[in-house]
């Protein structure tokens, strides 16, 4: 069962829920991350920004266990995390979306989001196969949670639509729904608004802030649109060529010379 709630129960809003410490990750000769450290406080929206190839996605992949850094530690809910597989990390209350939409194309919106409930369902395959008591009750209870999320994201109209047929913006929304279905302690969003028009971005920003406020979820957000970042994030960490070059409130980061240089493309010495 999902242990997220139990793990994070001792941590108050505003205290550290996760931190990465001196993370270095390379692929062959490519140094994706070099000695990166920062923390996430419970209940905040923490943006991770930086130019293309800066190592933002790699950072999320380290946090959710897709990548295993050569050096460094991840601390989660007050203790050092041992090396875990991504599916085990999901059971600790960390959910995510992907930069390139990774939905289950053959399934409906409903089933995609229902799959997000996986870590909250405990019935075993035998009881499911014979469709008896507990498995059925569990299915119904989880289905109700999923309907709540569908309502929250205002996607009732596409409940039964196979997601492969949905327009891009809605696919992104369904993917958020699937992550939310896990009732995560920590939600990782990799460019949730990429490729959206202004109206869609506004909707998405509103959902993210609602999630933060209503459920107290901690959110790590990768985003290229500076306007959005300044609007919805509490703190920002800036990466460039795998190194951390800035960390602070949106205002602090905006006025940081190294950050300005990185974005204006000042050549590296």
């Amino acid at each position: 069962m999902n242990k997220g709630a139990a793990l994070s129960s001792g941590i108050d809003t505003g205290e550290e829920i996760l931190s990465v410490r001196n993370i270095s990750l390379s692929f062959g000769g490519v140094k994706a991350l070099t000695d990166i450290s920062f923390d996430l406080l419970k209940g905040e929206v923490r943006a991770i920004i930086g130019p293309n190839g800066a190592g933002k996605s790699s950072m999320l992949n380290v946090i959710n266990g897709f990548y295993h850094p050569q050096q460094g530690e991840v601390w989660y809910c007050g203790s050092k995390r041992k090396s875990l597989k991504p599916h085990q990390i999901a059971y600790q209350g960390i959910a995510r979306t992907f930069q390139n939409i990774a939905l289950f194309k053959g399934m409906s919106t409903l089933d995609n989001i229902m799959t997000g409930r996986f870590t909250h369902m405990r019935s075993n395959i035998v009881s499911q196969a014979f469709w008896r008591g507990p498995a059925e009750r569990e299915e119904i209870a989880n289905r109700e949670k999923v309907e709540d999320i569908i309502e929250f994201l205002e996607i009732q109209a596409i409940r039964k639509t196979p997601v492969g047929r949905l327009p891009y913006g809605l696919q992104k929304r369904v993917e958020l729904g699937r992550a939310l279905a896990a009732e995560p302690v920590l939600l990782l969003l990799d460019e949730p608004m990429a490729g959206m028009n202004i109206e869609e971005k506004e909707d998405m920003s509103r959902f993210i802030l609602d999630v933060q406020q209503e459920f107290g979820t901690t959110i790590a957000l990768i985003e290229h649109d500076m306007g959005v970042v300044m609007d919805i994030s509490d703190r920002v960490v800036v990466l460039d060529y795998g190194k951390k070059i800035g960390d602070g409130t949106p205002d602090e980061v905006r006025n940081n010379q190294a950050v300005i240089d990185a974005y204006l493309g000042v050549p590296h010495e």
Partner: peptide
């Protein structure tokens, strides 16, 4: 079905 569609996404939901 999830695994048939996308391994990464399946892992990310705990499968």
């Amino acid at each position: 079905r999830a695994v048939a569609d996308d391994h990464q996404a399946a892992l990310s939901v705990g499968i």
